[in-house]
Simulated scan of single mutants.
Amino acid sequence: MRQIVLDTETTGINPKQGNRIIEIGCVELFERKLTGNNFHRYINPERDSEEGALAVHGLTTEFLRDKPRFHEVVEELREYIQGAEVIIHNAPFDLGFLNHEFNLLKLPTFDSHINGVIDTLVQAKEMRPGKRNSLDALCEHFGISNAHRKLHGALLDAELLADVYLAMTRGQNSLGMDIVIEESSGGIAMAEIALAEVMVLRASDAEEAAHKDLLDGLDKAVKGTCVWRTSSL
């Protein structure tokens, strides 16, 4: 399955008030693997960013002045996203802006080009009710480094979100088990089992001694042999 992790930066929070997209960043996943086939464009919105938005993304009017307008990049974007499942954090925000931009150009909606949307904010709230579920909070929860994220940037945020999404949805695939089943003359046969390499760390002498002391203490507490010394385990 082809998936696109997408993020945008905008001049403000409401497209109905004339705010526009100024950056689009997309990261491609195929069969849950990063392909490196990314899409990234800065866009001249032909207006200034609101003060609050500028503080978030830092993309000044001067920086964006010589960048292409949305109508100059839309065909590339349409081709890139066509038929993919799109992954967005807080999807209504980005989709609202994208559909607005497409509507201004009298094009079919952004939604009509893709094969569904996954909102990672919705998923995160289901997994972590009552917790902070911003992208930064999820990076911290899943141990994903975002130290280089000083300001919001569409491509950087899409790259971080791809890592977060893969971590959130890993499940039993975390050990890398991939079983391929194929038909044979005798019925269904297991053709291949591929397991990810697992690193085994041996205990040091000091750790083994500490472990023995712990078991000795447990033996003393139960006045016999604790369960952890039984040969059946």
Rank of each mutant, 00 (worst) to 15 (best):
D7C: 02
T8E: 00
I13P: 11
K16F: 02
K16P: 03
E23H: 04
G25N: 02
R32M: 08
R32V: 01
K33D: 03
K33H: 07
T35S: 04
N37K: 15
N38D: 15
F39N: 09
H40Y: 12
H40P: 08
I43C: 04
N44T: 09
R47N: 04
E50M: 06
G52N: 15
G52Q: 13
V56C: 04
V56E: 03
H57R: 09
G58Y: 03
E62P: 07
F63D: 03
L64N: 06
R65V: 00
D66R: 15
K67Q: 12
R69C: 05
H71Y: 13
E76W: 03
R78M: 11
R78G: 10
R78H: 00
E79Y: 11
Y80L: 03
Y80T: 05
Q82E: 12
Q82F: 10
G83P: 10
A91N: 08
D94G: 08
D94V: 01
F97K: 14
F97W: 05
L98E: 03
N99P: 12
N99Q: 08
N99A: 01
E101A: 01
F102N: 05
T109C: 02
T109F: 02
S112N: 12
S112L: 05
I114T: 10
N115D: 13
N115R: 12
G116H: 06
T120C: 05
A124C: 07
A124K: 10
K125D: 04
M127L: 15
P129E: 00
P129W: 01
G130E: 03
R132F: 04
N133T: 13
N133G: 00
S134A: 07
S134Q: 05
L138H: 09
L138W: 04
F142P: 06
G143L: 03
H148Y: 09
H152P: 02
L160T: 05
V164E: 00
N173K: 13
G176V: 02
D178T: 13
V180S: 15
S185A: 14
E192Y: 06
I193R: 11
A194I: 15
V200Y: 11
V200D: 09
L201Q: 15
A203I: 02
D205H: 12
A206L: 08
E207K: 11
A210D: 15
A210H: 10
L215C: 08
G217F: 09
A221G: 06
A221L: 13
A221R: 13
V222Y: 10
K223N: 14
K223C: 09
G224N: 08
T225Q: 14
T225D: 09
C226G: 11
V227L: 14
T230A: 12
L233H: 12
